[in-house]
């Protein structure tokens, strides 16, 4: 039995409508005051971590590298965006400018690190990004004139509202999805699968490695800026190695190479500790132990992560439902890109 396949424009239309409805529903609930202040902040954080996990997934799941400094790019984006926000007059245009600036600054750092690290074959990227994450933190502490130093950068305009975070999450996911379902995305996947074979097919492997890594850094930077706009105050200690590991755990648990996996596990692993923290005293002290155990369990029972490389779209649900209805009907083959 063949599955019903919708034509691409129809899929896009369905997805757009569903996403717009979700946005409206979310905004309505928030403005109706259903969620308290703390809960609203958690929802915002979930959005930030979804962007972080989905962007790290580009470098780990799709490209097959192991960067250990994602929090470093988040920090670069957070500080760059926040500093620009503070310099610009208040307004929604400034909000957008700060986010883009945060992303681009992080991408520039990604490019600077990626070019030397990715030209070499082997796992140099892990070590170099590990060092980068630490260096960034120290640099932020020492550049206290601009960054506020160890105590942190204060009085950041709180631009990150539900609509803005939501739109950034959706744009990130959609852009990465479109990117991966193209010749560029296939080139990146082919490098993960077999680098020598990719080269033998004429794929410029260094170029695409750097492209994927830079894209990953770009979106991490955007997440960083949104994070700053949600907290109002950021300190370098928040962007340490453990933060990078937190994000990596989300990607690995969700399934490397699965966007929906990254989204779900980012949402769960962001919300759960925040709720448990208030009910279960001292949870945070054991968080890393619990994560480690979780990871070991996943590695034993489902090494590919909870979702494997399975990917998902909203219109897919409708296709699934359509299978039963049109079990006999001839399917329409849309251009599957």
């Amino acid at each position: 039995m063949k599955a019903l396949t919708l034509k691409m424009p129809v899929r896009y239309a369905i997805n757009t409508v569903l996403l717009a409805l979700l946005l409206l529903a979310g905004s309505a609930l928030l403005s109706a005051g259903v969620f308290g202040r703390a809960q609203t902040s958690v929802i915002m954080q979930i959005g930030v971590y979804i962007i972080l996990a989905v962007s790290l997934n580009v470098a780990t799941g799709y490209l097959g590298q192991l960067p250990l400094g994602h929090a470093g790019f988040m920090a670069v984006g957070a500080y760059a965006g926040a500093i620009l926000w503070k310099a610009l007059p208040e307004g929604s245009l400034s909000a957008v400018a700060g986010i883009i600036f945060g992303g681009i600054t992080a991408a520039v750092f990604g490019l600077i690190i990626g070019i030397p690290a990715l030209r070499l074959k082997g796992d140099y990227l892990a070590i170099i990004t590990l060092g980068f994450g630490e260096i960034i933190r120290i640099a932020i502490v020492n550049l206290s004139g601009i960054t506020g130093g160890a105590p942190g950068l204060k009085k950041i305009p709180k631009y990150s509202n539900f609509t803005l975070v939501y739109i950034c999450v959706i744009l990130t996911c959609v852009i990465i999805h479109m990117f991966m379902k193209s010749r560029h995305g296939r080139a990146i996947l082919s490098i993960r699968e077999n680098e020598i074979a990719a080269e033998s097919c004429g794929v410029n492997t260094t170029y695409y490695k750097v492209m994927a890594f830079t894209a990953s850094a770009f979106f991490a930077g955007i997440a960083g800026t949104l994070y700053a706009g949600n907290q109002g105050i950021i300190a370098p200690s928040e962007f340490g190695f453990l933060k990078s590991i937190d994000i990596l755990v989300m990607v690995v648990l969700g399934g490397m190479g699965s966007m929906i996996g990254s989204i779900v596990s980012a949402a769960v692993l962001t919300a759960l500790p925040l709720f448990l923290q208030s009910s279960l005293k001292g949870f945070n002290d054991y968080r890393m132990i619990i994560y480690s155990l979780l990871l070991i369990l996943v590695m034993i029972f489902k090494p590919s992560g909870l979702f494997g490389t399975y990917d998902f779209s909203l219109s897919f649900l409708i296709e699934k439902l359509g299978v039963k209805k049109s079990a006999k009907g001839e399917k329409q083959d849309g251009a599957k890109a």
Partner: peptide, 26 residues
């Protein structure tokens, strides 16, 4: 490219026969 489909394997071979840029794809 084991995790990719048969078609995708061939499409990687055809990578340089396509010329659209990243923005055009996105």
């Amino acid at each position: 490219f084991k995790e990719l489909t048969v078609l995708e394997n061939v499409l990687v071979g055809l990578h340089n026969k396509m010329s659209y840029k990243l923005p055009e794809a996105v």
